[in-house]
Design a protein around this nucleic acid. Structure first.
Lengths: 167, 167
DNA sequence: GACCTTTTCTTGAAAGTTGAACTAGATAGA
DNA sequence: TCTATCTAGTTCAACTTTCAAGAAAAGGTC
């Protein structure tokens, strides 16, 4: 394993390899950790919880399905299933969109909001303990930049983020 | 939203919130990206690929199930299913462990190795494009440190990493 | 309006994951 | 030895995700 090119492939350097390994370990451990924490304390996986948080911050606590899927970076299909489950739990309700008869609004119910209010402190604590309490302010800043770069690079084309005149 | 404590909960500051959001976006986009890339080019999800890589680097290209699960940070259950699938594909073979009759060794087959050799360049390219080619050397270094801190903090207790005299 | 394309969202089946229960073998103590 | 406990790995059922297919409405063009 070297940093040199071989047969056209630029392999990862030793440092890059170890960074990549650390990244994979940190992200899988953290995602598992949060999934378990939220499954225990809120009865749902992390991604579902994130959907409710998203809704709670939207005007009138509701969003069009497609918009919600985009913001959460998941497919519409996946969102359909997720909302169906959250609806069964009584935390989300679907409403027809008045302006577009194809459209659906996912609405956070009062029960959903209440559940969020109850479990938010525990979740924030978990995130802090796993990440922010272990990093210096300088590291947090740098980390934010790095994540931003990576996310932007993977954003599907034709997104606002790709239009230079909006930067 | 402030940085102050309220009712005992230290909420995230605005900066922390935006870092957290960026983290969630970057990691879900990247994991999706790699899953699709490998599903297309190697016929399996990223985690399965990572298992084969792990095996390819082990002595005699084999590992005990539990050890492999630990290294890959997944449950033994999940690994059982994964290896069953990889076995059906002919990329891995199970062998009884001679020294412990409960044990199984997962062995990377020649076909598995060959498949890895073919798809590695494309995978490395994807990782580079998504991450390393977008970061400065200084960012890569810092990123590695940060991921290391987070991973170590989430490592199950009683691990070597927690024994101070090994540091 | 008729026609074609695009967008929105859902569905169903196949694949993957989880957590608990279970079998079999190892380990340790009396 | 006998027993209790622990460890390795698998399996089952419930749940989640993916991918492809499809229904319904919207938007454009002639």
């Amino acid at each position: 394993m070297t940093t040199a090119s071989t047969g056209g492939t630029r392999w990862l350097s030793d440092e890059e390899q170890s960074v990549w390994r650390a990244y994979l370990h940190a992200t899988t451990l953290l995602e598992d950790h949060l999934d378990r924490q939220l499954q225990r304390d809120a009865g749902m996986p992390h991604i579902y919880y994130a959907l409710l948080v998203q809704l709670s911050q939207a005007p009138r606590r509701q969003m069009r399905m497609t918009e919600l899927a985009k913001d959460a970076k998941i497919t519409r299909s996946r969102l359909s299933h997720a909302v169906a489950r959250l609806e069964r739990n009584g935390w989300v309700r679907r409403e027809d969109c008045p302006s577009d008869k194809r459209g659906q609004n996912a609405v956070l119910t009062d029960e959903g909001y209440e559940m969020l209010r109850r479990s938010a402190p525990g979740h924030v604590r978990a995130v802090r303990q796993a990440m922010f309490d272990r990093l210096t302010p300088e590291q947090v800043r740098s980390f934010g930049e790095i994540m931003q770069v990576i996310a932007t690079g993977l954003e599907p084309e034709g997104t606002d983020a790709d239009l230079p005149w909006l930067r």
